[in-house]
Design a protein around this nucleic acid. Structure first.
Lengths: 191, 191
DNA sequence: GCAAATTAATGATTTATTCAAG
DNA sequence: CTTGAATAAATCATTAATTTGC
């Protein structure tokens, strides 16, 4: 028999989807009770333990942070050799949506109104994997290469769709990488 | 000297965030007009051309699809060596959110600054395969490791598994739980 | 086409840091 | 100042994916 009785946890796609959904929803360091709940529910989709959930959130958070840091440093070390000839170089990585994202909607356009449909739905260009169809792309590439400087106004066909900025979830760790201020003072305490 | 005047496009963190936001919102293959608009807006945050936007979406879509396929295949090969000892083996990767997620709120856990380690003492129902050599670091995690088989060690203080069967939370913002105060129970700030 | 070697991804451990309490 | 708890960073280890030689 294959003597792999207890290898490491291999998450099922459902489990991964749920975990990622939770992470996107703001869950980062669930406490023991939450871990128990998550584990209980995820166990419906396959074998899982609490430590797996714990480790998953730890790793995911760490690697997300790592990714952010990496792209920051990479951008740092790049901008010193070439200069952004823009008029307003934003120094802070906090984007405050100077771009209204209306054209995200493209519901007035052809497809992909909802993001849920592109999961495994049609995938018309499968088989090409990650090699980009250069030849077909270059056929019209000069179009937007030529028109990249116009800056036409955003079509006001739709209003921004994604503005759910708050959610009731609350993790246990309040000191995260997004807060540089190590304010140990309980500002909400009795004063 | 590192005078690479025409390196490839290095996206700024803001640009990446916006692009990912757009991708999550459903944009997969923007047409030339959309690409031009995206480029115009993203050029505020740094040097960018239309082809960069085009290639980014191409690559991101391909990578996403690759990731999905890998998950599926990995799960395929997994279920043959270990059996889900659950009562309901899910055959389809379509998850219908049978997990309610209310426990994310944990609003009843004021004292949950520390991870809820008062879960359950020690349920010695384990001893299945191997003793976990968790000797250091997380002194609390053996608790939910021990309770992995019982299924209901949740403290009765907060068990909000009521009825909501879908994810009410949906957000794409990366700034989330850093907003709350550190410890809401620190009524006495010792100075 | 298949199998060994290589590489990338990621689950699991360990170590260091931080903050609070005494 | 010391200690203890919690977590983030770093690292290790294993699995899956890709590459390569036959």
């Amino acid at each position: 028999m294959p003597q792999t009785p207890s290898t490491r946890w291999c998450p099922t796609p459902e489990q991964l989807m749920i975990l990622e959904e939770m992470y996107r929803s703001g869950v980062r360091t669930p406490n023991a009770a939450q871990i128990q709940q998550i584990t209980a529910h995820l166990s419906y989709y396959g074998k899982i333990e609490g430590k797996n959930v714990f480790y998953w959130f730890q790793n995911h958070k760490a690697r997300d942070r790592q990714k952010l840091r990496r792209r920051l440093s990479r951008h740092q070390q790049l901008h010193l050799q070439l200069h952004q000839s823009e008029d307003a170089p934003p120094p802070s990585p906090t984007l405050q949506h100077h771009m209204p994202l209306q054209f995200l909607h493209q519901g007035c356009f052809q497809e992909a109104t909802t993001q849920g449909m592109d999961l495994v739905g049609k995938l018309e260009t499968v088989g090409t994997e990650e090699e980009e169809p250069m030849t077909s792309a270059m056929g019209f590439e000069h179009e937007w290469m030529a028109t990249k400087s116009i800056g036409s106004p955003v079509p006001p066909c739709c209003r921004p769709l994604k503005t759910l900025d708050l959610f009731p979830v609350k993790s246990t760790s309040l000191k995260d990488e997004c807060s540089s201020s190590k304010s140990s003072s309980c500002s909400t305490s009795t004063n």
